[in-house]
Structures are given as structure tokens and as C-alpha cells.
Design a protein around this nucleic acid. Structure first.
Lengths: 227, 227
DNA sequence: GAGAAAGTATAAAGATTTTATAAAGATGAA
DNA sequence: TTCATCTTTATAAAATCTTTATACTTTCTC
């Protein structure tokens, strides 16, 4: 019934993986699993699951870190499954973009219901880690941008700005919104920053930086990307 | 900061309502509350909250029933807050369309984080903010106007004016009203401004700017948009 | 309906604000 | 230190707003 509903499990405990694989499979989901954070990110990129179940206690990296990296591009539901039950952990995970948080040991029926609820919620969320605009490619998961198939050298701030704009293709983003997202609340008035970075970005991504086709100025408001 | 983020609390226990009202208010949400299921549904209709917190133990009806009725039309997040902690209750509620389920007693910080997570998820739910008038489209959310599917270049004032008129399709807006809305109180007498901007706008949105079909003059009164 | 008065449209010039860009100085990591 | 990046400053260019002038249209009065 749930033929193309792929779920990715990121957990280092074999028993948990087994249990989940069996339970979820028998409920019609297609399962992939990873035993470390980085394997998890790779599999998320390659299989684009409809939902990710993430354990916080991973061997190679902090689970919250992995969550943050996933959320840079992955917009569908992520359910945290963890032994940690402190309020602090829960709040941090939810604020980093987790959709739900369940503590181990968990009740199978509840997990399944929460999975159904989480999947139900992000219907119509098209997501992709690779955004393409003509000859420009923005690879969100790998933090890489290409122009005519060649990697463009971008600083991390430049990439964040490009990613933010690209993710919001066709939408006008105000100066304040961009400044808040990239630099944080304290920089909301630093419009000149933004201008400097926009100019630099245009030099790198536009065919004719003086006549931008991708990164469009909306005078008095902000900037808009593409179409 | 969350000025127009209205939350509805449906719970019959006064203490819980009080606690939630105080906690959520101080976090910047606007709160309405109801002590029975039917009152809750009424208030949900009249205030269209961004999120509903629903208790399952209500005096007049079963909470699950209320949940079902709400879900017939209410598409935003509903968080269940209940003393019932059986797996059966949780599964039923989630499958009836609840987004999250928290058992009493709850931790305030966790509730707040789950509220933030739930609200965050509805952000992708596109509001109906696309106004269409023949070949003209006004996309309020994305701050863009199109004519024959091509983006029209509008200054921010021009867009504000267009948006105001378009939102009030078929209604005559007086000069003073428009001036107050777009430029502010101090400009109420500057009727000539308005004429200049109306002319510019017509050049951009009308097929024949000299014979306007969309932006109609009501001589001596103001302007009217469409039909 | 003619003529006057009031209201409206539009172009264009001038003033102001906003934006683009280079480049110099500051910061911080290797 | 050196290098890459971030931050600040300065200034030219572009876009937008505001004002002015004039022609046109509607409404009102007789």
C-alpha cells in the first residue's frame, strides 16, 4: 500500500534497526538504514526518503549536528528517537527542525501513528538537494555550486545567501528577512553588507554581472531569485 | 513579535487554561480559550487560530469527536494535551488528524518547542493569496505581479497600491483612504501623488492605458478595481 | 447644450533615496 | 606571518519619489 513511501532509519543500535525494519516493512514502508550520521546524510541524498527517523546518540557525530545538516536542504519530516529524555534535548532538537521527538523505549503503535501523522503533514513538500537554474546548479547537501558544470568557489556566507535565495525561487525576500536568516537578528539594519555580498555573488554566478538575470534587485524591498 | 499568531486553547480545567494563557501570552502569542468542545469549535471558526491546543477530557463531548469535527475544515496544526496516556488514545488521536500528542503533566518548555515546531510546519501551507483578474495576477505572498504570465516590474509603492486595490476588488476606495493606507496620515491631501501613481500603474497593467478596464476612476470619489 | 469650474491624466524635470562597486582596513585561522 | 574572508568606507550610478506644468475629461449651472 505504501509502495513508494521510503523511510530512512539512522541509528547505531543493531537491535533497534532490526526492530524498526521489520515493523515498518510489515506496514508497507520501504526501508533504508544507516548506522552513522554521515552514512545517514549520504543515504538521505541518494534515496530522498519521505521521512527520516534519527537517533541522537550516534558514534561519529552529535545527532543534533546531523539534524542541522539534514535540515539545510531536507524539508520533509524528521522524527527523533532517543534515549535522552531531558527537556533541554527535546527543545533543542525540535528547534533545530525536528518534527517530533520520541524517547526510547517507545511503543510501536504510537511510533507508527506518529509516522503516519508526520507523513500526512508534509504532503506537497517537493524537496530536492540539487536546485538547477539554467547553467547554475546549487547542491544544498554538499554545499557546492556549479556554473557550466564547473565548481564555483564561494565563501560560506556567499553560499548561505545563494542557498537561501535559491530555495525561495520566484519569491521576493526583504532585506531584513535575508539579513536575519544569514547574519542573525543583530544585523537587521546592515543593508550595506547585503549589497556587498550580492555584488560579489553576482560576479560569480551571473553571465553578465552588470545585467543580472538570476539575482534580481527589488529596489526598496529586497532581492528575488530566478524566474 | 508573534503579533498575529493566534492560538486557541480548548480545555475545561481553569488552572490549565490560566497557566497556558500566561505562558503563551508571555511568549508573544495571542490567546483565546474555550472551556467546552462546542465553544471551542465556534471560537476556531471565528478567530481562525494558527494552532489549536485541545484537551481530550471535555464536559460536553468526547475530545476525539471534537477533533474529528475540527478536522473537517481546519487544516492547521492541532496539538492534543491530555491526561490519558494509553497507546490506544494516542494512536486514535493522531490518526484522526492531530499533529502532536502531549500528556499531562507536561513540561512548559517542551510544549513551547512543540508549538513552534507545529507552527513551522504549516508555513508551507500556501494561503490563497493569488488574486487573478483576467491576464493579470497579483501574488501577495511572493510580492509579485504578472501580466500574461510575465513578471511586471513594479516599484514597492506601485505594488502596494495595486495590492490594496486588488484586495478590494469591486469596491470604491476614496482618495483619502488610499492615501492613508499607502503613504500614511500625513499625505491625506496629496491627491496629485495618487494620480501620478495611478497613471504609472495603468501603463504597466492595462492593455490600453488610455481606456482602463481594471483600474477605474470614480470621479470626485476615488478609484475602483476590476469588475 | 454651452460654458465654467472642478477634477483628472500625463510627461517631464528636479530632488531624494537606494543600489552597485571598488577598495581599504580589520579579523581570525593555519 | 600570510591568506582568505569579513567589515567598513567612499563614491558613482541607477531607480524612485516628488513637484510642476499643461492638456484633457467630467460634472455642474444656466
Amino acid at each position: 500500500m505504501n509502495e513508494n513511501e521510503t523511510i530512512l532509519i539512522i541509528d547505531d543500535e543493531v537491535q533497534i534497526r532490526r526492530l524498526l525494519e521489520i515493523t515498518l516493512s510489515s506496514n508497507g514502508y520501504k526501508i533504508f538504514s544507516a548506522s552513522s550520521g554521515h552514512e545517514g546524510i549520504q543515504k538521505a541524498v541518494s534515496h530522498t526518503p519521505i521521512l527520516i527517523i534519527l537517533d541522537l546518540g550516534l558514534p561519529d557525530a552529535d545527532g543534533l549536528e546531523i539534524l542541522g545538516k539534514l535540515r539545510e536542504w531536507y524539508q520533509k519530516s524528521i522524527i527523533i528517537l532517543s534515549v535522552r529524555s531531558s527537556e533541554d534535548d527535546i527543545v533543542k532538537a525540535l528547534d533545530l527542525g525536528a518534527n517530533d521527538y520520541l524517547t526510547k523505549p517507545f511503543r510501536t503503535g504510537e511510533l507508527l501513528a506518529r509516522i503516519r501523522a508526520a507523513i500526512r503533514q508534509n504532503q506537497g513538500t517537493p524537496e530536492n538537494s540539487l536546485l538547477v537554474f539554467g547553467t547554475l546548479e546549487v547542491d544544498l547537501a554538499n554545499h557546492i555550486a556549479r556554473k557550466n558544470n564547473e565548481i564555483i568557489k564561494l565563501t560560506s556566507t556567499e553560499f548561505s545567501l545563494l542557498a537561501l535565495l535559491a530555495k525561495n525561487e520566484g519569491r521576493v525576500l526583504t532585506h531584513k528577512h535575508i539579513l536575519k536568516e544569514i547574519w542573525g537578528m543583530g544585523y537587521i539594519e546592515q543593508t550595506q553588507y547585503l549589497r556587498v555580498f550580492v555584488a560579489q555573488l553576482r560576479k560569480k554566478i551571473e553571465d553578465e554581472p552588470t545585467k543580472p538575470k538570476l539575482l534580481i534587485t527589488e529596489s526598496g524591498i529586497g532581492y528575488r531569485f530566478g524566474s
